[in-house]
């Protein structure tokens, strides 16, 4: 579960995040939409404990991040926009290493099991990551979250640059995780994918959460309209 209370981050005179309040429950997939500089990545960095908030507080499964940075990381998995792994190691070796440093020693069968569950084809298990596409690397990232048994997953633009098939497969994997009770926060530009997979959608601008929707209660057209209006963009007339 992810909770933020009036979470803010200020750099000098610039407020990059302004009193963000989120409450993402187990099994929820919350998509944060917004243009570049809206505060999406700052939110994720604050939740990861990479940066400290100027004010406000945030919690992972009830644990205050600022007070328990190490403990909260045990519950977290994170997949950045361009997940980079060690190119000279295979998928299994990468998974083994990242699980190992998280204190989770797994045997070969378990590692392969998680990669399979994440949808990576069996023939790629022992191939070096240098030969992997971005979609394949993202699947290893999901396998990492599965292996860690993370209850919270943070995703920063994970589908950017993926082809529609890979993006769809990734969406299905997130659905699977959601069904397992994982609370997911995903920053994205992709309205279509957000509408497809999210339970909740928030639109951010200039560090503020401007609008929130329950995904089932809004159509893609209305979401697009709301987004463009929030961003003060002109709608294309076809």
């Amino acid at each position: 579960m992810i909770t933020t209370n009036n979470l803010s981050k200020v750099y000098g005179d610039i407020t990059v995040l302004d009193s963000l309040n989120l409450n993402i429950k187990a099994g929820d997939l919350y998509c944060l939409l917004g243009a570049n500089g809206a505060g999406k990545t700052t939110t994720i960095n604050l939740l990861l404990g990479f940066i400290k908030p100027t004010s406000g507080s945030s919690f992972i499964n009830g644990l205050a991040i600022s007070e328990n940075p190490k403990k909260t990381k045990k519950h977290l998995a994170y997949i950045p926009e361009n997940l980079m792994l060690y190119p000279n190691l295979s998928a299994v070796e990468n998974l083994d290493y990242f699980s190992g440093i998280g204190g989770n020693q797994l045997n070969k069968a378990q590692l392969e099991g998680f990669l399979e569950e994440a949808g990576l084809q069996t023939s790629a298990f022992h191939q070096r990551i240098s030969t992997f596409s971005k979609g394949m690397r993202q699947k290893v990232g999901i396998a990492l979250a599965l292996a860690k048994d993370a209850s919270v997953l943070l995703l920063d633009e994970p589908t950017s640059g993926l082809d529609p098939k890979a993006s769809n497969e990734f969406g299905l994997l997130l659905q699977k995780l959601r069904n397992k009770g994982v609370a997911i926060l995903m920053a994205t530009h992709d309205l279509f994918r957000a509408k497809e997979i999210a339970t909740h959608i928030g639109i951010m601008k200039n560090g503020q959460l401007k609008q929130e929707f329950v995904a089932d209660e809004i159509s893609l057209g209305d979401l697009e309209h709301a987004y463009l209006k929030t961003m003060e963009y002109k709608e294309a007339v076809l």
């Binding site: 990861l48 045990k74 950045p80 980079m84 792994l85 990242f98």
Partner: peptide, 13 residues
């Protein structure tokens, strides 16, 4: 440079 440090840090290393 590769970005693996972010992943390592997110693991609480």
């Amino acid at each position: 440079e590769m970005g693996t440090l972010v992943l390592l840090k997110s693991q609480g290393t």
